[in-house]
Simulated scan of single mutants.
Amino acid sequence: MTYVIAQPCVDVKDKACVEECPVDCIYEGERSLYVHPDECVDCGACEPVCPVEAIFYEDDVPAEWREYHRANTEFFEELGSPGGASGLGLIERDHPLVAGQPVRTS
């Protein structure tokens, strides 16, 4: 099991969760953040600090955002498991589900 970052993070990317994550498993895409499912240790430290309530335990993702579990997993298919986000910085792409969302300006 793992945590999932869902739609409320798109175009927000507050990054409080990144600072709180003890294993550096939250990666930054162009428009959203993503939890690496193989690196996440299910500690839950990220969830309470998210100001837009975009982070959910895998089994608790609301029905309207269930596709984000797949998006968080597939985002890493090409990238693999780098062993930590801080060394990579911004990854200049997003999963198609995120890229296809209308841009939020506020």
Rank of each mutant, 00 (worst) to 15 (best):
K13R: 14
A54C: 13
E28T: 09
T73F: 10
E78T: 09
R66D: 15
D60S: 13
P37C: 01
G44D: 11
V18Q: 12
D14C: 13
E64L: 12
G84D: 09
G44Q: 12
E58G: 05
G87M: 07
V18R: 09
H69A: 13
C9I: 02
G84N: 02
L33Q: 05
E47K: 11
C40W: 01
D38K: 11
V35E: 11
L33V: 02
T73D: 14
L79C: 03
C17N: 01
C43W: 04
V10D: 07
L88W: 06
G44I: 07
G89K: 03
V10A: 10
A16M: 07
E67D: 15
F56I: 14
Y68K: 10
C50A: 04
S86L: 08
A6C: 14
Y34R: 01
G89P: 10
E47Q: 15
E67N: 11
E64D: 15
V10W: 03
S86F: 04
H69C: 10
A16W: 08
E78A: 10
G87Y: 07
F76H: 01
D59R: 11
Q7M: 09
I26E: 06
D38A: 11
F75V: 00
E39N: 06
D11Y: 04
F75P: 00
E30K: 05
P62L: 08
P62I: 10
L79A: 03
D14L: 00
V61R: 09
E30N: 12
C21Y: 00
D42S: 12
L33T: 00
L79E: 07
Q7F: 07
A16N: 11
A63F: 15
H36S: 03
G89A: 05
C50M: 08
E77T: 03
W65Q: 13
A45V: 10
T73P: 07
G44F: 13
D24M: 11
V10S: 06
F56A: 11
A16I: 07
Y34H: 02
R31L: 03
V52I: 13
D60T: 12
D38W: 04
D24H: 06
L88P: 04
C46A: 03
H36I: 01
A63V: 15
V41E: 15
H69P: 04
N72F: 04
E77N: 05
N72M: 04
V35N: 11
L33I: 02
A6V: 05
A54L: 08
Q7S: 09
R66Y: 12
P8H: 01
R70S: 13
G29Q: 00
Y27A: 02
E20N: 08
D24P: 04
V52H: 02
V49R: 06
V10H: 02
V18A: 09
E58S: 13
L79P: 06
N72Q: 02
Y27R: 00
V35K: 03
G80H: 03
E20R: 09
G84F: 05
R31T: 12
R70T: 10
P48G: 08
V10P: 09
A63E: 15
V23Y: 07
A71K: 01
V12D: 07
V35R: 02
C17I: 03
F75Y: 07
C25V: 04
V49P: 10
H69S: 14
F75C: 00
P22M: 09
P51G: 12
